[in-house]
Nucleic acid binder design. Structure first.
Lengths: 218, 218
DNA sequence: CGTTGCTTTTTGTGATCACAAGCGTGCTAT
DNA sequence: ATAGCACGCTTGTGATCACAAAAAGCAACG
């Protein structure tokens, strides 16, 4: 029995390809998939109970965002980043995130600062549990919460594609590193926000973003 | 008679979906399609003699890059940008292109400067012919030639997606504007390159990129 | 004359299939 | 024992179809 097309909704709940896209995207951006790990369309389809068609569309979309790489023969895998590429992506993060933070600063209310502090507090616990995925997840949540205040959707979308590209590599980096404490630059960010200190905020964000890179080079 | 699959090559020449993607991408980035213009999968397929499948994949890829927007019901059209979004995209151009130019500077040979001058010279002719598409095309060629020297593929890829998003709107802007001369900031860029003047180069690029925006606001 | 209702057409979505290339495995020959 | 080759399985690609929803065209009514 082939029930053809979507049995119930068109894309009211969310289309199948979009559902698969979101699921995969989360796994990638949170570093749940190792760099260079390969995926198959049929495998993805089976995992989410859809046919190859929506799986293919989700994969194409992610590939367009740099979250997946497709070989010449069409094989799908998470990208393995060279050191040069990591440096570039970190530079992009520094460039764009500093701008976002700067734009968010005048709009930062107390509620935002409270939320950032709460997230940051959670991170100290996560770190003690040696939970790399949880760490990345909370870290992104921290940055996203801040940048949302910038009211700059295009910039936010762009920086998220950069995060996406770094996802698998970040996980490899963090598990190798085993941090012992929450990022202390986050506290500098919060302090600068409280003080309304723009230069300090820019520096703190830039430092936080490029800090991981130094460990890689060292 | 259904000849199923690709009759000759797998993706040796380039897969059908990739072919369609490239064609559409060119048309969009050069401003050959007006903002808000709508496309259909069957129409695209017919235009390039392929079925809906590769057309759909090309469209998804372009949508992921922001070159096309897809309505809640799945309808495909070129995006209509709000003024706020244009300002954001221009800010992103300024941010990233200044960085790219800066990285290209130490690598800029005489051959590059000659090429930039040649492109710029062509633009004066194109302007007199009132050829908006040709203008955008040459302008992008100018910038791309410069940024290629930066040896920063991730940054270049990112900025190209920004250009893509602005494509249709740029055309609307330039036809409305009817420039009378080639962009004079290009000459400042070339001069700064020759002199090895980094601050001057950064300022010239930033001015060139944000100049179009001012006309919009005025 | 405009508006509301229904019917027809258009359009995107997802499943399925045939096909070809990739890739690995195991066998054979030297 | 190792190198080369052939076979089979895996995997991506593209065409086609059935379906549902949205859009457009059309008619009848206020």
């Amino acid at each position: 029995m082939q029930s053809q097309a979507k049995p119930t909704d068109p894309q009211a709940e969310t289309a199948a390809h979009d559902f698969v896209y979101r699921k995969l995207r989360s796994r990638i951006i949170w570093g749940e998939i190792a760099p260079g790990e390969s995926l198959t369309l049929r495998g993805i389809g089976k995992e989410y109970s859809v046919s190859m068609t929506p799986a293919r569309e989700a994969v194409r979309r992610l590939a367009a965002e740099g979250a997946l790489s497709i070989s010449a023969s069409g094989r799908v895998s998470t990208p393995v980043l060279s050191n040069e590429r990591i440096e570039e992506l970190a530079a992009l993060r520094a460039l764009i995130e500093v701008e976002l933070a700067s734009r968010a600063l005048p709009r930062a209310h107390m509620a935002l600062i409270d939320r950032l502090q709460a997230i940051n507090h959670n991170m100290t616990e996560i770190v003690q549990n040696r939970d790399a995925v949880g760490y990345i997840r909370a870290n992104l949540e921290f940055h996203r919460a801040l940048y949302l205040r910038a009211q700059a959707p295009a910039m936010l979308a762009l920086i998220e594609t950069v995060w996406l590209q770094m996802g698998p590599t970040m996980r490899a980096l963090y598990t190798r590193l085993q941090r012992s404490e929450a990022p202390h630059y986050h506290r500098l960010i919060i302090a600068a926000l409280k003080a309304g200190d723009e230069p300090g905020l820019r520096l703190a964000v830039r430092s936080d973003v490029t800090q991981g890179l130094k460990m890689l080079a060292g």
